[in-house]
Design a protein around this nucleic acid. Sequence first.
DNA 1: ATGGCCGTTTGAAACGGA
Length: 282
Amino acid sequence: MRIATWNVNSVRSRMPRLLPWLDQRKPDVVCLQETKLDNDSFTELLADELAGRGYEFAHHGEGRWNGVALVSRAGLDDVVLGLPGEPGFPDPEARAVSATCDGLRVTSVYVPNGRTPDDPHYQYKLTWLGALREAAAGDAERAVICGDMNIAPTDADVWDPAVFVDSTHVTPPERAALAELTKLGLHDVVRDRWPDERVFSYWDYRAGRFHQDLGMRIDLILAAEPVAGRVAAAWIDRQARKGTAPSDHAPVIVDLDEAPDGNIGPMVPPPSNPKRRPGHPT
DNA sequence: ATGGCCGTTTGAAACGGA
């Protein structure tokens, strides 16, 4: 099963990239963030396109900002919009949607940005991450949390740590909040697969940052231990950041082998070709 | 090495993003 997550930075403006990407990568489950649409508009825009490709969807939107979706052709059961007890600013925003897909409890999240450490949005971000932890703790054996975490887990996940001193996305409290998720047994599957590689998922539109590979890795797939044990491949789809009118984020993709009761034997590592590896800058 | 881009609401320019 292939699961992907992508902050599309407006699904309406990204349609010319999203639909061909679905046909090219053929994910079974897609987590979208920053759809920037209300639910009726998302349905009007995408319902037919997705149904024609065999997908169901659940969208949690509010219009101008935020907005998250789950798109699946591996089942979409027990959909929940938002997080239990989630904080708002002041009202809850459209930042999480969960569903059960082929036995996995998948959540698409768009963690609050935080703006600056002295901004009220920063505390909101930390509180929101606490609610995410509580939700994940209830599904620690089958959780797959995908999305834009707006946190770079380590200094290796930013192009120049010196630039980000005193900025959000790298502060110890944010990283500690993220570590609370890994303490539940959730694995950062891309970093596990590429422990020493320079792998980014976001590049600022400005100043040719993408072409110089000056980015950050803030879009993550966090998988519960039994799920992480099924990972056959995990990579960042830099191709989707190239070309005309891309999002400033690239999709993150994980391929899972069959669940153990599928009985296909031990995990086989993906092919290793040092000259051309998925997720490696090209 | 965040003035420099992009998308949104708007109907020229402010705001958010990371």
